[in-house]
Every structure is written in structure tokens, then in C-alpha cells.
Design a protein around this nucleic acid. Structure first.
Length: 338
DNA sequence: AACAGGGTCAACCGCTGTTGC
DNA sequence: GGCAACAGCGGTTGACCCTGT
């Protein structure tokens, strides 16, 4: 596991490549082929380290590289593949002929990621932002269980940990009172139901229906199930809350109100995750996340034409939204979360 | 015209995995 | 098995470009 020493060699040039250097590198590789990157610079009379030469070749000079803007199909493939493979840029690149991992990574970070965030979708999990779900869960269970007296300032504190803007925005719909008690619950209910409705409309369509043609349904289902079974995100989130509540002495009530169907204190990791998904199922997420795809018309297909022929940012947003299969209600302002 | 701010992308850095001795 | 060299990967940086003021 020796650490590469090529980077700290003195006298080697760094920074952008000149046309002359490019030519030298191409000439050498055409004659001798690539490989032996360590010795290549010396043989090719380049004042670069081998690593730099390899990068220049693989990311720019290789003859099979397709340059230019990503097509709609490529973008679609990237999103789908990222959902399955995560940040495995080279694996994604190997399925997109002519595109380099660096190019795809840059495209993801500068275009797709931002777009997903703008739509309220977590670019890592490809699901609605967990802070939205968690806060909704918290609110939902609290408001529906009037026997628990919830201190809104505590909620705000927790919400702020998750996302201060969202918490503030949501809770601003409450009246001036900072406590929701059985006595004043009714008078808050109208306002709260508005908030609930906003979240309850966060229902995904059938995620699996957006499968690209090169991934069959079984593969996608398996991939998604693996993703779900290995995902620690929900658990971690809940665990953080659990720790917080325990530290602040609010564990029992708050824990129960968050996950009323679970034995909160004895909860194992699995159970925590299960409960987490049960809460998500309140949003209508569960069935679509875990169900086998039906043979219904795919939203992807139906929207593809519009997207491909379109090309404005809004149209792409709409298209992405269909790929991700989550409709963010317009009434819910997620811009402040970005 | 000058400047600021944001977006883009080539290149670098640090780390891990693989291979050969 | 241990070590070193090498290849490759993903995250980050910084120069350049574009747009708005």
C-alpha cells in the first residue's frame, strides 16, 4: 500500500496542459500504448508525473471520448444508475460509452444534484428529504395524539437540528401560543391540517416504473430493497432524536409520539428502521417503496417526449420529478431549505 | 466599463485496491 | 505474509467564464 510519491516530486509541471504536451502524450501512446504511467513521462519527454499523464489521457485525450452536452437519455441513465450505484462514478461511466467518470461526477454535482435538491429530493437517497419526513412525522403524531402535550419550542429546537428554515416555516402556521394542549388543540387543527395536507400530498408514484430499459424490474427491485435494508439514514436520524430526547429528559413522551406503535425504549436497530418506515408509510411512501412494480404505464415514458423535446430548466425539473416519482406540492416552499 | 458572484470543469490530492516480488 | 510500486477512484480545488448590477 505504498503511497504514491509522484505528486511531491520537484521540477514536475502542474496545472493545465498545453497543446504541445497533449501532442507529445498522444504521439507516445499511439506508438507504445498506455500503461506504465510511472515511466511514461520520462519516455515521452514530459515534465509531468505519471498520474497527471494518466488523468489527461483518460479524461481528455482518449479518442473514444464523447464531448459536449449530456443528452436527455444520458441524464436519465445517470440518475437511474446513481440511484442504484451511488457515487460509483467509474461504474456509472462504464455504462455510458464515451463519458468519463470525472465528467459524470462534474455533471452530477453541478446540474443534477442541485436540481434534485431544488425539488426537495435527497440526491444521496433519491427520496424526499428526510428532514421533511421526520418533521412531518413528528408533527403528525403529535397533533394526532392530543394526550401528549407538546412544547413547540422543543419541537422547534429539534426541527432546527434537521432544518431550521423548514421548522420555522411550518411552525409559523401555528398560532401565537407555544403549547398544543388538549384544550386549544381544536383551534389549531385547521391550521395544522393545512400543514398535514401539504405533507400528505408528498406521495410518490410508483418508483419502479421509471426503470431504464437496461435494468429489468427484478434487478431494480433488488437494488432498491438492498438500498432500503442497508440504509442507516432513517435509523440514524431517529437515533439522533432519541439521544437528544434522552439527554433533555423528554425521551418517553417524545419518543412515543414520534413512533406511537413501537416499544420505544427497547427498540432495536431493525425495529427503529421498521418504525421509521411505518411512519413513512403514513405518508403513503411505504407501499410504493416496497412493492413490486406493476405493469402500469410508466410516467417516465409518458414524460420523456416532453422532456426530450423541451429543454428548459423547468421542463427538466418536471422530468426529474417524474423520474424520482415524488410530487412536491407547490404550496410547500422547499426553496428555503436549499 | 468595472466589479461581484455564481457556475463549470480540468486537474490535483489523498486514499484504497491490486499486483508482483 | 510483508512490502513496494502501480493503478484507479472519489472528493476537492482553483482558474476561467458568464451574467447581473
Amino acid at each position: 500500500m505504498g503511497k504514491s510519491a509522484c505528486c511531491d516530486k520537484n521540477g514536475l509541471k502542474k496545472g493545465p496542459w498545453t497543446a504541445e504536451e497533449d501532442q507529445k502524450l498522444m504521439d507516445y501512446i499511439q506508438k507504445h500504448g498506455h500503461g506504465k504511467w510511472r515511466t511514461l513521462p520520462k519516455n515521452a519527454e514530459l515534465k509531468r508525473c505519471g498520474k497527471s499523464c494518466r488523468l489527461r489521457w483518460t479524461n481528455y485525450l482518449r479518442p473514444d471520448i464523447k464531448r459536449g452536452k449530456f443528452s436527455a437519455e444520458e441524464e436519465e441513465a445517470i440518475i437511474q444508475l446513481h440511484g442504484v450505484l451511488g457515487n460509483k462514478w467509474s461504474a456509472i461511466a462504464s455504462r455510458l460509452p464515451g463519458r468519463t467518470d470525472n465528467e459524470i461526477k462534474n455533471f452530477w454535482n453541478t446540474h443534477i444534484k442541485r436540481r434534485l435538491l431544488r425539488m426537495g429530493i435527497d440526491p444521496v437517497t433519491h427520496k424526499p428529504r428526510l428532514d421533511l419526513l421526520q418533521l412531518y412525522s413528528l408533527l403528525n403524531s403529535s397533533l394526532c395524539n392530543s394526550s401528549h402535550q407538546i412544547n413547540i419550542s422543543s419541537l422547534l429546537g429539534i426541527g432546527s437540528m434537521l432544518n431550521p428554515n423548514l421548522a420555522t416555516s411550518l411552525l409559523s402556521t401555528q398560532s401565537n401560543s407555544h403549547d398544543i394542549s388538549p384544550g386549544n388543540f381544536q383551534e389549531h387543527q385547521n391550521d395544522n391540517s393545512q400543514v398535514q395536507n401539504q405533507f400528505q400530498s408528498l406521495q410518490p408514484n410508483q418508483i419502479m416504473d421509471s426503470s431504464p430499459q437496461f435494468l429489468n424490474e427484478t434487478q431494480l427491485l433488488q437494488a432498491n430493497l438492498e438500498q432500503i435494508s442497508t440504509s442507516q439514514t432513517n435509523f440514524n436520524c431517529l437515533n439522533s432524536l432519541q439521544s437528544l430526547w434522552q439527554e433533555t429528559g423528554k425521551s418517553a413522551n417524545m419518543g412515543e409520539s414520534l413512533m406511537p406503535n413501537c416499544g420505544y425504549n427497547e427498540m432495536s436497530n431493525q425495529a427503529m428502521m421498521k418504525c421509521s418506515f411505518e411512519n413513512i408509510s403514513n405518508l403513503g411512501l411505504n407501499s410504493s417503496l416496497l412493492s413490486t412494480p406493476s405493469s402500469s404505464t410508466t410516467p417516465l415514458q409518458s414524460s420523456s417526449t416532453t422532456y426530450v423535446n423541451g429543454g428548459t430548466e423547468d421542463e427538466r425539473d418536471s422530468y426529474c420529478s417524474n423520474i424520482m416519482m415524488f410530487d412536491i406540492p407547490s404550496a410547500l416552499d422547499v426553496n428555503g431549505l436549499l
